[in-house]
Every structure is written in structure tokens, then in C-alpha cells.
Design a protein around this nucleic acid. Structure first.
Lengths: 187, 187
DNA sequence: CAGCTCATGTAAGGCGTTACATGATTGG
DNA sequence: CCAATCATGTAACGCCTTACATGAGCTG
């Protein structure tokens, strides 16, 4: 059984406020980018699917601009559906495919020097990512009155913690490999 | 452009030793399960594809058992291909879709109590996972002479660090939510 | 000989992305 | 009026999983 998680992402966003497809896309890019993404090819068909299932409806208050834009509202049925999904346990699926780890696992096929360089680059990228996340966190903290505040903060905090852990692991791994490299040479 | 990472997983495993499709599958299940998986529907077609591209060949030393089993060896071209892939930079794709975070993000749609319960369950699952990873780590440490040893240890260590970070985040998040819950009631 | 594991595959179908197509409106 | 942005979609394709199909050998 497949999930079609796009459905729930859309439903969730519509509990915040009525939105058009285009606005949903923007919102995901601006606020959820660090843990979620949607493509047009997924989003628009899903919206029509949700309509058919009566989990969302076309909002009658038209959009601010004069353009044709379909603004959607979540229905009561949609809310129930979303809540049910949110309360479902999901087993901890071990991140099914981590390409970085796969490469590391086969490290003996390239030189230690090369491996170390890869890790250093990775660490650098992660540090940039960390800055981004912290910027999001700081921006969030400025509007602590929203009912969503606490959840959004926890969400971005998860990203921060994860990246920090990855950076630490990179640092330690680099040290380990550098030590091994020195041992190799001295022999 | 898509990657077909299965190719590289197979090539990598064949640098360790010649293997049949079935053995590759077992190996992934037994040793790489915490960061990689393959299904038959992906594995066998990929093997034939690799054959056609001359990155692997049928090994002539037949398998231990008398059954028909196609054991494969990596070719020099295959090795080059693998090494090239390993030295390629990949941009840090922010884990494109994290369902747990998506649920948390929409937390205001359900009760704090429910959210806390979800997090507690998640933490428990993560702790079990941590034990598994540590068991793998301990098993690995017993054969420290292998040339793969250092890489395999680093790989599993990455898993351990990630899970530990996630557990800590869960713990802190639970505390934060419980505090918010108390504040709600006392008002 | 029944049932297990070994062993290799195929078919169907969902998920998801990329790239393209199409227009309307707005701003310079 | 030209370009950019707003706005909605579709077509094609790749990845990946699930489920099934098939058959050989092995074990009691």
C-alpha cells in the first residue's frame, strides 16, 4: 500500500488558511523546504483528487488578485481524515536509502585522502545548512503568539539537531580517518 | 536526471567478493539494512543491465551449492565507474520528505496530549533502533582486521549518532510540550 | 513427498520529478 | 508592448515496491 503523503501535506496546510495550489506551492518552498517538497505534477492532480473525495472544496471568497485562481478550503471530512492520519503510528522505517552512507561503506575502493576530502566537503555543506535552519528558527521566534508556534519551532529544531549531529559525526569521522592515514604512512 | 543508485550498491558489494543476486539481497538485509534496501524487482533487472554494460561479468567459479546461481564479478570498467561515482560531490539534498515532521508541523490540529503520546512512542521506537545499531557496532568491532572495518564502523556510527540525536530531540520536545500543556490548564 | 530455503525473475502500479504547455495579469 | 510573475495543468519517464510465478535442491 502506498501513502500519497501529498494529500496530507495539502490538507494540513489548508487547516492554516484557505489557499490556492500556487500558494500551497509557495508556502512549501518558503516554510517547509527543509523537510518537505512538492512538484506541480504531484500537487495539482492531488488537489483535484481531494475535491472528488470531498475533503476540500472550492472557496467562494475569491482570491485577492483578479486572476483566476482556485482557492480551496478544507472540509470537516478532510479535517477528520487529517487527524486520523496524524494519530496513526508509523513504524520507524530506517531511512531507506542514504547515498552518502553507501559511498562511505565502500570507502576502501578509494584513497583515505579522497574519503577525508568528501567528508570535509560534506561537513561544510552541513554547516551552511545549519545556518539556514538557524535563520528559520530565529525568524520563527519573532511570532511566538501563533497557535502553530510551538510545533513549528519543534519541527525546525529537529532539523537543527539532526544537522548538528551530522556535523559532529563528520568531525569525528575525519579525525578517525586522518589518524588511520597517519598510521598507514608510518608503517 | 535520475541516478539508479542500485547499480552502485551492487558494484560496491561486488568489490568485496563475487556474489549472486540472491547473496547480494541477503547481504543487504543482513549488513546494510539500516541505511539501504533493495527489492527483487530492482535488483535482478539491474544485474542484467550491469552485464550488458560490461561493468560486471558472470564468474566462472561456480557457487558452493549445486544449484544454478549466477555469481557475478566486477570488471575493471565497473571498478572505474564505481570510483567515479564515489568521488562525485552530491549537494546536500534536504531529506525530501519526512512524514514525522510533517505530522508535527500540523500539531495544532490535535491535542497536546496526543502529540506528546506520539513523541513518546517515537522515542521508544528510536531507543529500540539504537540498541539494534549498537549491537551491529559491537559485532563489527570483533573483526577489526578487515580493510573495510574502519568504513563499516564509521557507517554504523553515523546511524548511532543520528538516532541518539533524534532521541534527545524527542526528549526535549516532550518536555517542551508538557510544559505548554501545564500552562494551558493553569490558565 | 511435503515443505523449506535457495534462486531468479516478471508484471502492475504508485509515487514523484522534470519539462513542457498555456494563458492571464502586472509593472516598467 | 514586453517581460516577469501568477496560475494551472499534462505527458513522459524513472524509480521502487509488492506480489506473484517458477523451479531446483534439501531435509525430515
Amino acid at each position: 500500500m502506498k501513502k500519497n503523503t501529498t494529500k496530507y501535506a495539502v490538507l494540513g496546510l489548508l487547516t492554516i488558511e484557505p489557499l490556492s495550489g500556487y500558494e500551497i506551492k509557495k508556502m512549501i518552498q518558503n516554510s517547509l523546504a527543509y523537510f518537505w517538497s512538492e512538484s506541480n505534477g504531484q500537487l495539482y492532480p492531488t488537489l483535484n483528487q481531494l475535491l472528488k473525495e470531498n475533503w476540500i472544496v472550492l472557496s467562494d471568497n475569491q482570491s485577492t488578485s483578479k486572476k483566476k485562481s482556485n482557492r480551496y478550503e478544507i472540509t470537516e471530512a478532510g479535517r477528520v481524515k487529517l487527524q486520523k492520519w496524524m494519530c496513526q503510528e508509523e513504524e520507524e522505517k530506517s531511512i531507506h536509502r542514504d547515498e552518502n552512507l553507501l559511498k562511505l561503506f565502500f570507502g576502501s575502493n578509494i584513497s583515505k585522502k579522497e574519503c577525508i576530502q568528501r567528508l570535509k566537503n560534506r561537513k561544510k555543506r552541513l554547516q551552511e545548512k545549519l545556518k539556514e535552519y538557524q535563520a528559520i528558527e530565529n525568524k520563527l521566534r519573532k511570532d511566538s503568539t501563533s497557535p502553530h508556534f510551538i510545533y513549528w519551532l519543534l519541527t525546525v529544531n529537529c532539523g537543527v539537531c539532526g544537522v548538528q549531529a551530522a556535523i559532529n559525526w563528520c568531525r569525528n569521522s575525519i579525525i578517525t580517518l586522518e589518524k588511520a592515514q597517519r598510521d598507514e604512512i608510518s608503517k
